[in-house]
Design a protein around this nucleic acid. Structure first.
Length: 256
DNA sequence: GTCCACAGCGCGGTTACCTCA
DNA sequence: ACTGAGGTAACCGCGCTGTGG
C-alpha cells in the first residue's frame, strides 16, 4: 500500500451553511462563500425598524409640481382589476372605478394600459421609505400613497418591483463572488494535483524499505501516538480494540 | 381539534410602455 | 425619422399564511 490516494482526492465544492443559523448581513456575505442565492429578501427584515415620519421627508412643496396627481394617475390606467380593490375600502374602490370610467373617455380613448412615470420626488420618497422597510403594512401603504398622491396599489407594485430589482442585483453579485471562488478552488485543485504527481514520482524513486504507507506514519496530535501498521494489526486481531487511525482531513481528534 | 373557504400578501415571470443612444 | 436596448410600471398566476365558520 502506497500513498493513500483517497486522501488526495480533490473536488470543487462549497460547504453549505447551517440552515438554522440566521443569514449573515449582505456585507458579510461578500466575504463568505455560499451557494445560497435566495436569501436577500430576509436581509431586509434585519433593517432597523424606524418609525418613519413621512412629513420629514416629503413636504407639500416637493410634490407641488407633481404632474401625476391622484386623478391623473388614476386616469392613466384604464383597466381595474378586482385584485386592485383589495387595497382600498369600498368607498375608495368606487372612486377608483369612477376614475377608470373617466379614463376610458380621456385622451385618445384607447383602453391599452399607459405607462406612469414617477417623478423624481416620488421616486426619492419611495426609495427613502424602502430603505427603512422593504415591505409595507396596509397603514404605511395608505399613508405613503396619500403622501405621494398615488394609489395604494401603485405603491405596492413599486415596492414589489423594487424588491425584485434588489434581489436580482444581489444575485448577480453573489454569482460573481461564486465565480471567483470557483476559480480559486480550480487553481488549488490544479496545484495540488501537480503536487500529488510530484510526490508519487518521488516515492517511486525511493528504496523499497522507505516506501511506508503514509497513514502508518501519521501521528495523532491528540495523544501523540503513531498510527502504525502494528497497531492496525493488533486492532485487527482484537474485535474490541479500534484501530487508531487519524484522518487529518476529517475530525482532527475524532479517533481519540 | 380538524377541515375548508376565503382574503391578503409576496414573489417569479411576463407584458407593455417609455426613454434614450 | 427610425430602431433596438434597457428600464420599469403594471399585470398574472401561484403558493403561503392567517382567520372565521
Amino acid at each position: 500500500m502506497g500513498i493513500n490516494d483517497d486522501l488526495c482526492v480533490l473536488g470543487l465544492g462549497l460547504t453549505s451553511s447551517d440552515k438554522s443559523a440566521p443569514p449573515p448581513p449582505p456585507l458579510q456575505r461578500q466575504h463568505e462563500p455560499s451557494l445560497t442565492l435566495s436569501l436577500f429578501g430576509e436581509t431586509f427584515d434585519r433593517i432597523k425598524k424606524v418609525d418613519f415620519d413621512y412629513n420629514k421627508v416629503c413636504s407639500n412643496d416637493v410634490l407641488s409640481t407633481d404632474p401625476y396627481g391622484q386623478d391623473s394617475a388614476a386616469s392613466s390606467l384604464s383597466n381595474v382589476s378586482v385584485k386592485r380593490e383589495r387595497d382600498m375600502g369600498s368607498e375608495e374602490a368606487e372612486t377608483e372605478r369612477v376614475s377608470s370610467r373617466v379614463s376610458d373617455e380621456d385622451d385618445d380613448g384607447s383602453n391599452g394600459r399607459k405607462k406612469l412615470r414617477l417623478t423624481k420626488a416620488q421616486s426619492a420618497l419611495l426609495e427613502e421609505s424602502f430603505k427603512l422597510h422593504s415591505t409595507l403594512n396596509p397603514k404605511q401603504k395608505q399613508d405613503l400613497a396619500r403622501e405621494l398622491k398615488l394609489r395604494p396599489r401603485q405603491v405596492e407594485v413599486w415596492f414589489q418591483n423594487r424588491r425584485a430589482r434588489t434581489k436580482l442585483k444581489q444575485t448577480e453579485v453573489d454569482c460573481e463572488f461564486l465565480k471567483k471562488c470557483c476559480e480559486t478552488l480550480t487553481d488549488d485543485n490544479r496545484r495540488l494535483q501537480k503536487e500529488l504527481q510530484e510526490l508519487k514520482a518521488l516515492k517511486l524513486a525511493q528504496p523499497l524499505y522507505m516506501q511506508l504507507p503514509a497513514a502508518t506514519l501519521t501521528m495523532c496530535p491528540s495523544c501523540e501516538r503513531i498510527g502504525g501498521s502494528a497497531a492496525a494489526e493488533n486492532a485487527a486481531k482484537s474485535p474490541f480494540a479500534k484501530p487508531h487511525f487519524y484522518n487529518r482531513f476529517t475530525n482532527p481528534s475524532a479517533a481519540c
